[in-house]
């Protein structure tokens, strides 16, 4: 290969230059776009920490909102309210999601029904959260004639199900078939094999999926607008309107008062920190899971 065939044109210098130039241009462009994408993230985080941290104080975590015009006040009831709604949502969404994932991975392999359910779950995952909100409003709030924490919990639970279902299925699929056979061969019933062997082996990944679903709905506002509604006071009853952190941030953000804007920033910072903690825990779990799978 030390001679080019006669009939093949020699690459011209200009052509090479053009190709090299194009190559460099694309490299620069892709680096630039990465910077452009990361810039808003950094901007948002920096601004959030700057604005939020300066408005955070102990009262934020211990007080309920102050009336208009009065300084001070906090979001204690919103933080607790978010906790209540998320607990309700997790209690409903996580078991159903995991069970559906178990069906897809352990009972439905290769069946048409399972494929249809898998596809529906993926599509449901993309249904806008506001649609969930008005559906649950139509189902629960219109019937009961009042807004409630329960309605908010159901709306968020429905949003958690498809994510958890799909992660559970994917994680169960990584459990080697030989391990299931070992348990079945010992005369362990299938239900016990699924719960004690498959599910337990896949548990790091499944926990990851649940945390991701949790983190995702923790910041949701739209499904709560017409279900949980929000509340300026303490409320622990499931059939009454309840405050939630994202709702309160929204109300304060579009209000005309500076004091409330400050609280909105503080609330956002708290919300983000809570979600970040969840996501970071997920990362740690996921990494542990990977190591376990390799051994």
């Amino acid at each position: 290969m030390n001679k080019l065939p006669m009939n093949q044109p020699k690459p011209s210098a200009i052509n090479t230059l053009r190709r090299q130039g194009m190559n460099h241009l694309v490299t620069v462009l892709s680096v630039l776009s990465t910077i452009l994408v990361l810039a808003p993230l950094v901007a948002i985080l920096v601004y959030l920490i700057y604005k939020g941290a300066s408005s955070l104080n102990l009262a934020f975590f211990t007080h309920i909102p102050a009336p208009v015009g009065e300084p001070g006040g906090g979001m204690a009831n919103s933080i607790v309210g978010s906790g209540v709604i998320l607990l309700l949502a997790s209690l409903m969404g996580i078991p159903i999601g995991i069970a559906a994932g178990i069906y897809l991975a352990e009972f439905g392999r290769g069946r048409l029904l399972a494929n249809a359910i898998r596809f529906t779950a993926d599509v449901l995952n993309g249904v806008p959260s506001i649609v969930m909100g008005i559906s649950i409003y139509s189902l629960i709030v219109m019937r009961q004639k009042h807004f409630s924490a329960l309605a908010g919990g159901v709306a968020l639970a429905i949003m958690m199900v498809p994510t958890i279902t799909r992660t559970t299925e994917e994680m169960l699929a990584t459990v080697p078939h030989a391990i299931r056979e070992a348990a079945l061969g010992l005369g362990v019933p299938k239900w016990r094999t699924v719960l004690s062997i498959s599910l337990r082996t896949a548990s790091p990944g499944i926990i990851t999926g649940c945390m991701l679903a949790f983190a995702r709905v923790a910041g949701e506002t739209a499904p709560l607008l017409f279900t949980a509604l929000g509340n300026q006071f303490w409320s622990f009853k499931l059939n009454e309107p309840i405050a939630a952190l994202p709702l309160q941030i929204y109300v304060y953000a579009i209000s005309p008062y500076d004091e409330w804007h400050r609280l909105a920033w503080a609330g956002s910072l708290v919300l983000i920190v809570m979600i970040m903690i969840a996501v970071t825990l997920v990362r740690i779990f996921a990494n542990r899971g990977v190591l376990k799978g390799a051994s």
Binding site: I179, E181, G185, R200
Partner: peptide
């Protein structure tokens, strides 16, 4: 007893 050892990893 199976072809490949299949201990329960957890």
């Amino acid at each position: 007893v199976f072809q490949r050892p299949n201990p329960f990893p957890t």
